[in-house]
Every structure is written in structure tokens, then in C-alpha cells.
Amino acid sequence: MKYVFTLLTLCLAALPAAYAQTTADFENLETGAAGFLNGSDGSAGFSSGNIFLPNSYNPMFMSWSGWAISSVTDTTTPGFTNQYSAIAGGGHEGSDNYAVTFASPSAVVHLTGEAAGAPVAGVYVTNSTYAYLSMLEGDSFAKQFGGESGDDPDFFRLTVKKYLGGELSTDSVDFFLADYRFEDNAQDYIIDEWTFIDLSSLGNADSLWFTLASTDIGTFGMNTPAYFCIDNLTTTDMPVNTRAVQRSEAKLQAFPNPASSEWHLRWEMDQPAQAKLWNMQGQLLASFTLKPGVQVLSAAALPPGGYLLQIEGQGGRLSKRLVKY
């Protein structure tokens, strides 16, 4: 486990003072011989720095959604058989690991620990090899950007929003992973290097919400492969007096976890608190009052996968990962 903690001295415009920052670079995760982690070990997600990347793996279908961690360096093989690869050929600045997501329709990054409820400085992004080569050359489903003439004003856009207090922000940050809208086709581009996106304008956040849009869209949704990669996501470690307190998870016990039909939640506080259950796409599934003692949270209607239970009370905030199998 290797965390990279970076203490920055610069002042962020959105913040009243200088705070410590933590960079999630995923180097603490071992990708093994396969070169990727797709949740097949039942981890339901990946933690690095002060973020948690949810993952859902279906052992019956051997499929995954959410996030995967990768160190794959193959930048020449097109198609979904090379779905874990970043076109940059590795992590940011030559590091080994990075994260890749299948953002269909969206992907969420949860902020944890001291970063929960605090601003996010930014993240490095690049195209997956699958999406990059699909846009560059086309494939049997998706078009070569520019179309038959090369003049189609195509684009592949990443939009980032935040969740705070259970609400999705209207403010967003857009970043074009490919842009063919220029009059001069020579200026058309597809991102093939790690590129920094400043997310400080989003302000305080509990989680980040990512979605992709493409001009190549049809009856069955977006034809461009809905993949992109991130690395070095930098969060702000905000002082206690400027944000909600992150409670100790010891105050909340959930068992069994993973569960097949229900979780028993033991709330070891004297006062009730508001609880919210989120799925990995950032959708609010349930909102209820958590009373002192033990109560049951049904999982029967939920598809297998990872979930986030978020508790908010007078004393601060607590997040706990729940897994349904």
C-alpha cells in the first residue's frame, strides 16, 4: 500500500486557506499478471488516497462495471479485448497504474476520509485505447470521427459534476477527449496524453460524477466506446471546522457484508441520523432515518454490486461500503 501525500503551499482560489492535498495515484494497488483489477476478487471497489472507486463484478456473466485499475500498456490493439488500456501507454508521468471506467451511462468517484465534503483540485484524464482507436479508425459499431468526408463536426466530451448532500450539481466541467469541430481539419484532435482537468470550480463535494457524450449516437445509445481513464486525482484534506466531521466507521456496523438479502445495521449513537443509500452510478436509492440500535436494510430488490451508505447527523458524516452478492 503506497499512498502519495502531497502538501501544497499554493492558495486555491476556492478555499480560504491552504490545505493539505492527497493524490490518488492507484500505485497502492497490485494489478498482478493480468495487468488489471476488474473486481473479480469481489472487492466491490478500489481505494486510493482519499477516494473510493466503486466496482461491480458479475461472476455469472464475468462482466464488470464501474471502475477497474489497470497497468496495461498495449496502445495498438483496437476493440474491447483491449478495454483496460490507456492510450498514453501507462499511468501519468510513466507511473504504472491508472483507473479506467466504463461510464455507461455514468461513473462515480466517492471522496472518503478527510476529502469527504471538500473540494477536488483536479484529475488527469486520457482516452482509453479502445475509444481512441475507435474514433481514429472506426469499428464495426462506431464511426471514424470526421465521418466519410472527414468534415463531420464530431466530438467526445467528458462532463464532470459533483454530488454534495445527495444532490447533483448543475455546475459542471466539460473536457473534450476528442474534438473535430474545427473548420480546419488539421486542428481536429483526439487526446492521447494525460491531460489535467481543474475541478476546483466545482467546490465542495461528496463525490464526483462523470458522464460521456458523443456525436456518434443512435437508437442503441452512444456508439463511441464509453471508456476513459484517470490518474492522479488530487483531493483537499479539509480541516474539521470547515466541513462535516467524518465519523468513525466503528459507530456503524453492517452485517453480514457482503449480503444476499439484507444488511443488519447497528447504529451505536444515542441520536438518530439521516442515512442515504447510493449505487455506484451515484443514484440515490433510499433515504431513511437510522435509529439507535439495530435495524434491517433490505437488499432483496437490489442487483448484485457495490453500494455506499452515507450517514449524516449533527456530529458529522460517515460513509460505509455495502456489497450485495
Binding site: 481514429l136 479508425e137 472506426g138 469499428d139 464495426s140 464511426k143 471514424q144 465521418g147 466519410e148
Partner: peptide
């Protein structure tokens, strides 16, 4: 041989 589409540079399928 599976030909490329009109918006696909190549195919070897």
C-alpha cells in the same frame, strides 16, 4: 471477409 463500414478505416474480420 467482413468489409469495413464507410466510416471505418480497415477491417480484417
Amino acid at each position: 471477409e467482413v468489409p469495413p463500414t464507410t466510416v471505418q478505416a480497415r477491417s480484417r474480420a
